[in-house]
């Protein structure tokens, strides 16, 4: 079973349980649909990173106070600001499918999440290659909403990247991303190659979450 399918199954809440044939068929079908409708656009910029007193960091003209982010960025002198989206086509197909077949809609939703993560991983590898040339190594990406890194920073990140114009990613008044299958994140870069553990979803305090990666 490929990694994408495994991730989709995790998002569907199966945990370690076996998956039935019918669901697997729905998953395969969903990835086919996504291949043709998903837009895949991304953008990033690199800034110098300043560590301030307490749990504050500063980049561009933005100051962020967050204990978990400051910890994630420890030892970094650059920060990559990153935005990515699968575009509105995916939202449209999920909305449409919700009317005709809810099982398929739920599977599409999970597959789109897996698809998006994989796309972000690919983008990140590309950025990592570029930064390695100047002797820097990337940390795991960290998104607003992880730990105490406030979700409101989605707005600041999308403004700094001009995401509405460049990739079509916008933020609603209640800090939600549209298209919904989108990511904003920051990625630290340091000159020392640390063997840092993958810290995305694992940084969350909700230890009993059924989607949690490190317990699966």
């Amino acid at each position: 079973m490929d990694q994408l399918t495994k991730e989709a199954i995790r998002y569907l809440g199966y945990g370690r349980n076996a998956v039935d044939e019918q669901t697997l068929a729905l998953i395969a079908d969903a990835f086919d649909i996504l291949q043709s409708v998903a837009g895949r656009k991304s953008i990033y910029r690199i800034f110098c990173l300043e560590h301030m007193d307490g749990d504050k960091i500063r980049f561009g003209n933005l100051e962020v106070e967050s204990k978990s982010l400051a910890k994630n960025m420890k030892g970094c002198d650059r920060i990559v600001i990153f935005g990515a989206t699968l575009g509105i086509g995916v939202d449209q197909i999920i909305r449409r499918t919700s009317l005709t077949d809810m099982a398929k809609a739920v599977v599409l939703q999970a597959c789109a999440a897996a698809f998006l993560e994989k796309y972000c991983d690919e983008c990140q590898e590309q950025i990592a290659r570029e930064l390695r040339e100047e002797g820097r190594y990337l940390r795991p990406r960290f998104s607003p909403g992880y730990g105490d890194f406030s979700i409101e920073y989605q707005g600041s990140i999308t403004r700094m990247l001009d995401c509405a114009k460049t990739i079509g990613l916008t933020i609603t008044d209640s800090s939600m991303m549209t298209p919904t299958k989108s990511v904003t994140a920051v990625i630290g870069a340091s000159t020392s190659k640390e063997n840092c553990h993958r810290q995305g979803c694992e940084a969350c305090a909700k230890k009993d979450c059924i989607y949690r990666r490190d317990t699966l």
């Binding site: 349980n17 998956v19 019918q22 669901t23």
Partner: peptide, 14 residues
């Protein structure tokens, strides 16, 4: 009980 999962629940519902 955790023996049937969301996609199956919904396929049955459909």
């Amino acid at each position: 009980k955790g023996t049937v999962f969301l996609p199956q629940l919904l396929m049955s519902a459909e």
